[in-house]
């Protein structure tokens, strides 16, 4: 049996390294940073850890319905394809910065991509 993507990426240590880089990119991106409230940074970081754990194929209990619910407030704020693409871009750039091999980046991107319909509430 091949090891899970999560373990091949380095598990929680990889999430810890990635969250620092990813969240900085998101907050620095004027296209999408309005979706990420700045009031409670610690809570936001916990959520970004959940996002990355999920995209890395790691342990999570999120269903498609959970993804819908988690983002429905954002859809009401106007969340659309462009915003989704921007997040995908930052995910890829983060992993590239961490020198993750392209094949693994593609696997993580595919997992994130599979949630598009639910995240955008379609």
């Amino acid at each position: 049996m091949t090891e899970s993507l999560y373990n091949r990426l380095g598990g929680e240590a990889a999430v810890n390294a990635a969250v620092d880089i990813f969240y900085r990119k998101v907050l620095g991106d004027y296209r999408i940073n309005r979706f990420f409230g700045t009031s409670d940074m610690d809570k936001q970081i916990a959520k970004q850890r959940s996002f990355l754990t999920m995209a890395f194929g790691g342990p999570n209990n999120y269903s498609g319905k959970d993804m819908r619910n988690a983002h429905s407030r954002l859809v009401d704020m106007g969340l659309n394809e462009d915003h989704f693409n921007a997040v995908m871009e930052h995910l890829g750039a983060t992993l590239t910065e961490l020198k993750v091999p392209p094949a693994l980046i593609a696997e993580a991107a595919a997992i994130a991509e599979s949630t598009r319909g639910d995240v955008l509430g379609r």
């Binding site: 929680e12 999430v15 916990a46 850890r49 959940s50 754990t53 790691g58 342990p59 999570n60 209990n61």
Partner: peptide, 8 residues
Amino acid sequence: ACREGVCQ
């Protein structure tokens, strides 16, 4: 909550 070491 998460039981997976994520939410702390």
